[in-house]
Design a protein around this nucleic acid. Structure first.
Length: 538
RNA sequence: GCCCCCAUCGUCUAGAGGACCAGGACACAGGCCUUUCAAGCCUGGUACAGGGGUUCGAAUCCCCUUGGGGGCACCA
């Protein structure tokens, strides 16, 4: 067991979050140093919805940083909002994390020395520290009703002033407080922000950032229902859980000065902050997390990890893709393994600028990883998707001897596993249904196509069903008939698969087997005869 | 409205004052291969938002403008 805490304390390099007057480019040189101690980082999802793509990226970066430094990745559940609680959101988050291979060292189901890891189970801790702040004059109880707050806001809006709390309760006298307390008036606890001056901090990606303290008006720390707000809970827990680095979404940047003042009030050492760039909608407009939007082709834009999983993306592709969302592995490739990512991960190569979700790259990347799969692996992964989309029990499918023959035929054609059914349905239906017109080859009529098919049918009947045995004779036949191979094979393709675009012909026929292939030739001949008859009468 | 962040090909990005008339990837276009579709290989086009500085020298540092994003809850 690594004594990370000692290592952290004993580190000789100055902490990079110390305020610096260095110009940014100089600062960037400094920040390249990777901590010479194991970091403690956390992912803190809120169970108010399914696990989002952006959350997964944040989780991944934290996980990579922990693994890179030999540190710890902690999972903490921020379930302090009782009104937005979603029952299966926690399970979804854990499933998504595990699917991506992001294991946590402390947290739900694994425990750890800093528990509990559910904020709803840490209420006494928040009460204790909120009370401490009040006692020491860094916070105060506020008895303002929501009605008063609402009226205040409307008045401010009417006067076109900035909205915000008027600090009414900050100035209560001791006797007034005693009266409220005696009457058991519901109260919240607010942070007493400095009334003037500035708060600065260093973001590991952006350098020093300074805010005017007047911008933040005494935010609520403890709600009247006894639950903490994010601000209190996250500062208290990060300190108590000995978090050293916070990598989180850019949307938190504006509340850092609040957090800084909380750390100061407590007298606690601050962690290193790195605010990750937001992932924008593929159109580049708006952040991804807002709401379901439509993609360019009007298709649903996937936002939850579970949706990507169901759409047939591989976890290894997703991992790789998520890793390039704001971080660059190297100047000349986007493809890398989990191990390579761990070895290379660093803060300096995280990009501070927000970017659109490059979904076409995900498709390419997923196709790449599908092509890397061994055939047994591929068939194993394909089975649940085919079962789902074809309505066949998985067990039946898993035992189907045709599957290992079919899988390699489409391996290099797939962008997602979910596309498999559309390619392979022909092998799993009793009878094909398709437009007979497709049987007529280019530059041929129905009669000519029929003659070609009959000849091929006859030839096929006497041939062994192997790739080598089929190809030569069929090519020779095309020549004998004075046809291009494309013409003859096209007819056979439609006859056997019912599609003009299908997996390679001979492989498809072999997977189908002699019997079914010949039956489909016969079926196609019947269709063509009808067309011939129609042509001669019409 | 106020505050904060960001700004390189269509998109994601490399870039830490000279190695950049800017490299890679995806996408796109053309070609090769070819039984369809893919895959693969080859080739191609397109970018430092604009304007001022600093410097012998700026994609890189500073300022302004513009554009984009985010935040301003008893949500996280």
């Amino acid at each position: 067991m690594v004594d990370w805490w000692t290592g952290w304390r004993d580190r000789t390099n100055p902490p990079i979050y110390q305020l610096t007057n260095l110009p940014l480019h100089q600062y960037h040189k400094e920040k390249t140093m990777t901590p010479n101690y194991p970091v403690r980082v956390r992912m803190a999802p809120s169970p108010t919805g399914y696990f989002h793509l952006g959350s997964a990226r944040t989780a991944l970066f934290n996980w990579l940083y922990a693994r890179h430094t030999g540190g710890a990745f902690i999972l903490r559940i921020e379930d302090t909002d009782r009104t937005r609680f979603v029952a299966d959101a926690l399970q979804d988050a854990m499933d998504s994390l595990r699917w991506l291979g992001l294991d946590w060292d402390e947290g739900p189901e694994v425990g750890g020395p800093h528990g509990p890891y559910f904020q709803s189970e840490r209420l006494p801790i928040y009460h204790e520290w909120a009370g401490w702040l009040v006692e020491h004059g860094h916070a105060y109880r506020c008895y303002c009703s929501e009605a008063r707050l609402g009226a205040l806001r409307r008045a401010q809006q009417a006067r076109k002033e900035n909205t915000g709390y008027d600090r009414h309760c900050r100035h209560l006298t001791a006797t007034q407080r005693a009266e409220y307390a005696a009457a058991a008036t519901p109260a919240v606890v607010r942070l007493a922000m400095p009334l003037a001056g500035e708060t600065s901090f260093t973001d590991a990606l952006r350098g020093v950032i300074t805010f005017d303290n007047r911008q933040i008006i005494d935010p609520i720390l403890l709600k009247s229902d006894g639950f903490p707000t994010y601000h209190l809970a996250n500062v208290v827990d990060d300190h108590l859980m000995e978090i050293t680095h916070i990598l989180r979404g850019d949307e938190w940047l504006n509340s850092v000065p609040l957090h800084v003042n909380l750390y100061r009030a407590f007298g606690w050492e601050m962690p290193v902050y790195a605010h990750l760039p937001l992932i924008l909608d593929p159109s580049g407009v708006g952040k991804l997390s807002k709401r379901k939007k439509k993609g360019e082709g009007g298709e649903e834009l996937l936002t939850y990890i579970r949706e990507y999983r169901q759409a047939g993306y591989l976890p290894e592709a997703m991992f790789n893709f998520l890793a390039i969302l704001g971080w660059s592995y190297s100047a000349d490739t986007d493809l890398f393994s989990r191990e390579q990512a761990i070895a290379a991960f660093d803060i300096p190569h995280i990009n501070a600028s927000p970017g659109a979700l490059p979904l076409s790259k995900l498709d390419w990347m997923n196709g790449h990883y599908i092509r890397q799969l061994s055939i047994p692996d591929l068939t194993g992964r394909l089975a649940p998707f085919l079962a789902r989309d074809l309505g066949i029990p998985v067990e039946t499918l898993a035992e189907d001897p045709a599957l290992p023959t079919l899988a390699p035929l489409i391996q290099e054609r797939l962008k997602t596993l979910a596309e498999a059914a559309a390619w392979l349905d022909f092998a799993f239906v009793a009878k094909l249904s398709y437009d007979p017109q497709m049987l007529i080859a280019k530059k041929l009529d129905a009669a000519g196509s029929l003659a070609a098919l009959e000849a091929a049918h006859k030839l096929l009947a006497g041939l062994p069903f192997t790739e080598e045995a089929l190809e030569g004779p069929l090519r020779d036949l095309a020549q004998e008939l004075g046809l291009k191979t494309g013409q003859l094979f096209g007819i056979l393709r439609v006859a056997t698969t019912g599609k003009e675009v299908a997996p390679p012909l001979f492989g498809s026929m072999i997977a189908l087997g002699r019997e079914r292939t010949l039956a489909r030739c016969a079926q196609a001949e019947a269709s063509l005869r009808t067309l011939v008859a129609a042509e001669s009468t019409g």
